[in-house]
Design a protein around this nucleic acid. Structure first.
Length: 713
RNA sequence: GGCGAGGUAGCUCAGUUGGUUAGAGCACAGGAUUCAUAACCCUGAGGUCUCGGGUUCAAAUCCCGAUCUCGCUACCA
């Protein structure tokens, strides 16, 4: 049974404090969340909007080491910048907290403790890479090696930054500790796990059963896929010294911290607690009372945490569950996906520097970005930011339709109504007047409905459409024509003045309504309209939308000022140029450091004796046939003629070679390697390959063709 | 390979439980107008709804197959 909503708790994904955030993040989570929250506040609902920096995890110390600073210095550097970026763009968190705060550490520890004491966590011993020189277990990030996917020699144990593939340290070829440069050894360690598999049926019932229809299809589909695939216990702790330490009374917990995915979402709770402390409120109902509607705004990369893992944690702890998780897809930029490593991105900071700083445009330009990002929000599929699209949205919608309507209303009012709000002469209202007035409340209803369903782009379209209705109305009324119908002595007939009054009265009330309706989306613009109309911000309360009594008759208004400026071709050309230059510079830098990595980071393996080497039997063979292995993207099944026999070898080179183009090539084969089954095919040996810095593979072969079966030593 | 999400006008996207000539915005063309940031307003052109089968009186919509894009995942001695 669904409870009546008494209060709202809105969260936006915690930004990871290891660098600046780009507009893809903004469009995916923070902007829709802010729009929704501003709408709720205008509805005078009880709402708290929490967010904050995610400051734990291994990437922080890694990045800090790169920059030559401590982890603490690192988060102290990025936290305030990101917070300020959000503020500059009008993202109105009630609190922008941080997970390094003591209250968060306490909260997260208590969470772990309660679950652990209740027996909801299990412990498992496992082998982890350990650096003997540094006397430390190695987090995935601290292990480097060759990427099995793209052969990049600088891949990390959790992910290859060259090809983007997620990895586990065991997959790396030639793993090396980044602490000492030595090859790590495996050592036993105990960790706590959250047994997600125990909660599959609950999750399925809750997501597919309860929310199969009101959650977005991409969210439900992804969750279903995870659940049906079977969930695994997930490690809650890590061997690391940066993060939330385990409670001191937990046996075997020394030197371990909570895994960042576990403590990060708890950051929503600790942020709420801090907000309550700051504002003399009680945080508990927001997390414990069934009358709270909790909504998580995230990007699609975060679905598993907010729909599977965190809900299990919340349920076990006795908290409420999210009512919805409107995850957005990704936003591409000028034809390519946004990427920090390739520097193909538009950071909030860059936009702020180029457009929002007072000398470059001011806050109106924050709203322009908000407008375009909402208009192209990836609500149901990946979308694309282009500078041309940005320019078009601004010039032909904000400037030409929305801004222009308000501007011409004010200009005409000053010219034809002496700068005051004219009266409404109800006796001469016609059908068009009445239809226009009705259109306002109809638009409000549609917008309200769409916002409640998280359909922000549609809702925004309705607002612009209302301005369009205003333009149409004015065009049909043509008050400037009526104004020319003067009598011989240069005066207007009373009835003509009344017609003009009615037109502009309606246009001005419509303008005030536009301020209310645009406010959740473009808050700076709404305020500016209030300023022009000389009304207080209080008028922006949602209940006032639809009213035709927002402006008092006879009240004198300010001289018109433009709400938006045009964006010229040169400006966007400059941005496109900047984007390309930055990514090319980054590409060059990667190529440069790439070769450095090869010199400094590729370690020679431990010394061996000749006998060790002599165990390996290498022979020359020729590929006589090759075909793709079914149901495997990377495997080729090869027949190798070794002179004395022809044998089957399965090799993971399908991404690099087409079967037909390698037939006849001579190769080097390890012929005494133990057989191994792959995808059901037994592989008897291994083909040796060389790889260059870019990850391209080459066969190792004799300088001229020689007899198959020739030995190599 | 498996799973999930998509493939609709030049571009960005809507299309509710299958139902008359498939919609909107932008861009484009023509017209009208001048209060307005050469803005607004009206009209128009435009799509074998990725392709191929099937179910149905009727399919963009349901089923099967193919194909492409994005994501997750498996295979890499």
């Amino acid at each position: 049974m669904k409870q009546e909503t008494k209060r709202y708790l809105i969260t936006a994904a915690l930004p990871y404090a290891n660098g600046l955030k780009h507009i893809g993040h903004l469009a995916g989570a923070y902007l829709p969340a802010d729009t929704y929250v501003r709408y709720l506040r205008a509805q005078k609902r009880d709402v708290v909007f929490v967010c904050g920096s995610d400051e734990h995890g291994t990437a922080i110390p890694i990045q800090a080491a790169k920059e030559g600073i401590t982890s603490q210095e690192m988060i102290d550097k990025y936290h305030p910048i990101i917070a300020q970026n959000f503020a500059d763009l009008g993202i109105s968190f009630d609190i922008y907290h941080r997970t390094s705060a003591p209250i968060h550490h306490e909260t997260a520890r208590a969470f772990f403790e309660k679950l652990n004491n209740a027996g909801e966590l299990i412990t498992k011993e496992s082998e982890q890479y350990f650096d003997e020189a540094a006397n430390s277990f190695l987090a995935d990030r601290y292990i480097k090696g060759t990427c099995p996917n793209c052969s990049n020699p600088g891949a990390y144990g959790d992910q290859c930054e060259n090809c983007g593939k997620s990895l586990s340290p065991d997959e790396l070829i030639n793993p090396v500790s980044t602490l000492s440069g030595n090859a790590p050894i495996k050592k036993n360690t105990t960790h706590w796990y959250l047994p997600l598999d125990k909660h599959e049926s609950f999750l399925k019932e809750w997501i597919v059963g309860e929310h199969g229809n009101d959650w977005r299809s991409n969210v439900v589909g992804q969750c279903k896929s995870w659940i049906d695939g079977g969930l695994q216990p997930r490690a809650v702790t890590r061997d690391l010294d940066w993060g939330v330490k385990l409670p001191s009374n937990v046996k075997g917990g020394e030197g371990k911290v909570l895994y960042v995915w576990f403590d990060a979402p708890i950051g929503y709770i600790s942020a709420t607690k801090q907000w309550a402390l700051d504002n003399g409120k009680d945080w508990r109902p927001y997390w414990e009372d069934a009358g709270t509607k909790m909504v998580h705004f995230i990007g699609k990369d975060n679905i598993v945490f907010h729909c599977i893992i965190f809900p299990v944690m919340l349920k076990l702890y006795g908290n409420i569950l999210p009512d919805n998780v409107p995850a957005n897809e990704f936003m591409n930029l000028e034809g390519d996906k946004m990427s920090t490593s390739r520097n193909w991105k538009l950071e909030m900071q860059d936009y702020i520097d180029d457009f929002i700083k007072p000398e470059n445009g001011g806050t109106q330009m924050a709203d322009v970005l908000r407008y375009y990002l909402t208009q192209i929000a990836p609500e149901s599929k990946d979308s694309e930011f282009t500078w041309k699209g940005f320019q078009d949205a601004n010039n032909s919608e904000l400037v030409s339709i929305f801004g222009n309507f308000i501007n011409r209303s004010l200009v005409l009012m000053h010219k034809l109504c002496k700068g005051k709000v004219p009266p409404l002469h109800t006796t001469i209202l016609d059908d068009l007047d009445r239809a226009t007035i009705e259109a306002i409340s109809a638009a409000k209803d549609r917008i309200t409905h769409l916002l409640e369903e998280y359909k922000f782009r549609d809702a925004l379209f309705e607002v612009i459409n209302l301005a369009r209705t205003g333009n149409q109305y004015m065009q049909k009324k043509e008050p400037w024509i009526i104004a020319k119908r003067q009598t011989v002595d240069g005066e207007l007939l009373t009835v003509d003045q009344q017609l003009i009054d009615n037109c502009l009265h309606i246009c001005l009330q419509l303008t005030a309504n536009l301020a209310i309706l645009i406010n959740p989306f473009l808050p700076f613009t709404a305020k500016k309209i209030c300023y022009l109309l000389k009304v207080v911000d209080k008028i922006l309360d949602w209940e006032n939308a639809g009213s035709m009594k927002l402006l008092s008759v006879g009240y004198s208004l300010r001289a018109p000022e433009l709400l938006f400026r045009k964006i010229e071709n040169e400006e966007i050309e400059k941005q496109v140029e900047k984007l390309k230059t930055a990514s090319e510079a980054k590409g060059q830098e990667l190529r440069d450091t790439g070769s450095e990595i090869r010199v400094s980071d590729i370690k020679i393996k431990n010394e061996i004796q000749f006998d060790d080497f002599a165990k390996i039997d290498l022979k020359v063979g020729t590929i006589v046939s090759a075909k793709k292995v079914e149901k495997a993207d990377k495997l080729l099944q090869l027949q190798i003629d070794l002179g004395f026999e022809t044998r089957t070898i399965v090799s993971g080179i399908a991404m690099h070679f087409k079967p037909e183009e390698i037939i006849g090539k001579q190769v080097t084969v390890v012929v005494n390697l133990a057989p191994r089954k792959m995808r059901g095919i037994e592989s008897n040996g291994m083909i040796l390959m060389a790889e260059d810095a870019s990850g391209k593979l080459y066969f190792i072969q004799p300088s001229t063709t020689i007899d198959n079966g020739s030995g190599i030593s």
